[in-house]
Nucleic acid binder design. Sequence first.
DNA 1: AAATGACCAGATACACACATCCAGTCAAAC
DNA 2: GTTTGACTGGATGTGTGTATCTGGTCATTT
Lengths: 256, 256
Amino acid sequence: MRTGKAGRPPQDPARQLARAHRILDAAGELVLRWGYDKTTIDDVATTAGVAKGTIYLHWKTREELFSALLRRERVILLTEVRRRAEDGTGMPGELITLLAGALVERPIMKASLLGDSSVLGKLTRLKRDSDSPTALETHLETYLGELMTYGALRADLTPREHAHILASILYGFMIVPQLLPAGYRLPDARLAELTGDAGGRALTPNAPDAPVTPENARAIARVTLDYVDNALEIAQRKLAASLGDPLGDPLGSKEK
Amino acid sequence: MRTGKAGRPPQDPARQLARAHRILDAAGELVLRWGYDKTTIDDVATTAGVAKGTIYLHWKTREELFSALLRRERVILLTEVRRRAEDGTGMPGELITLLAGALVERPIMKASLLGDSSVLGKLTRLKRDSDSPTALETHLETYLGELMTYGALRADLTPREHAHILASILYGFMIVPQLLPAGYRLPDARLAELTGDAGGRALTPNAPDAPVTPENARAIARVTLDYVDNALEIAQRKLAASLGDPLGDPLGSKEK
DNA sequence: AAATGACCAGATACACACATCCAGTCAAAC
DNA sequence: GTTTGACTGGATGTGTGTATCTGGTCATTT
């Protein structure tokens, strides 16, 4: 039994949640069309078919609303990656392909990763600072360290360097198409493939050097799924915190 | 031996050229310190120890002055790359290492590549459009095509894709350090190494697949040096055009 | 002739008043 | 209890007159 929530369910929580998602749908649509700076709460309310005040029953401030949107995007992205990673090998190149593939399909996440101020406006830098930075990177380096012990990553680089390479390749491949004249762009799927390919080649030992034993291969797949699961779980927890509690909730009041 | 201020050396082209370089030195120093937008012609003149009008004996407009600066930077960069490439193999990874290594040492070139508006201000987009784009990329794809025929590049990618990968990796590795907290950064030399390493692995066939014959290796080294030479030559020609002719020069007179 | 720096005009920054917009509130209607 | 939407105040734009700055010129100096 996992009910957890002490206190009283005010009305129909499922209905509330559905409404929150409708509002986020509207916010997402508008932020893509006009950008964060030009998207007003009134717009969001109208598009979502609720009154403005209702939005403030869900989130205390405009910024919290969009923070929830970003968190939901992250959960969707990770869920998708997790789903596609399900029966993969967990090798870096493969995971990067999945990640890149999911990213090119989620413009808001891509904008968040790239710090694209034409979409996220003033929200751009904020997320970078507050949310993920140290925690995510610590988890990442731990995960990379594990991969190294199983021979999935080159032994001649430090975890720090692996992380650096990973970030550079992912960032580079995601941003370069935006700098190129439209005619030069590759199809999204191809871009994702090449990203994973480049990442895999940069991070992975040369095949003959150190063949991965079957049990190591299994371990690699496992720790990879564990890592994605963990990231997803954290993201889900944060999203729940951003969605749950309409203002009055006694638990949420002292939060943060 | 005096000529402190009222010296009138009739007209010594070499002396003129030296003065142009002194002015560019000053401009480079100031643009790095304060950025393009805040660097005034008066500043440059004072720092270079000449009068403002003198600068206009060399360049018709402020923009031409900075264009010359950028062109000189490019020539210096390419000269350095050319020098270091002299007795190399011409394989992609190696060349990328050289290029990245030269880039991290030349902040202005790096800013130009990355479109860093904190340094180049309003000049940022201009260069991108006017100078290099199509010509450079055509030459690049030709060169990549040649490399492919000699087996220096993977045969399962198109030249276009090779160019895309190259750009992504170079851009990613150069820009990521600026986004990271200072503590995470790798030493410049290591960064250049890793860039070339990643580029080489992404673009180069796996060793056992198709061993490069000695004569192909020689051809690769040759076309690489040719490519760099050609790029350098073009850059030098453009620089000469930006430096030469103090306005009166008969050759340059058809300007505007 | 070569170099200078005082000079000019146009651009840019600043300061202020005024209009507009919009996040967030809350009394009233369900 | 839940939802609404008119309302408010602080913030953000806009217009304008003024001051300052700075790219570029050119008569003067050496």
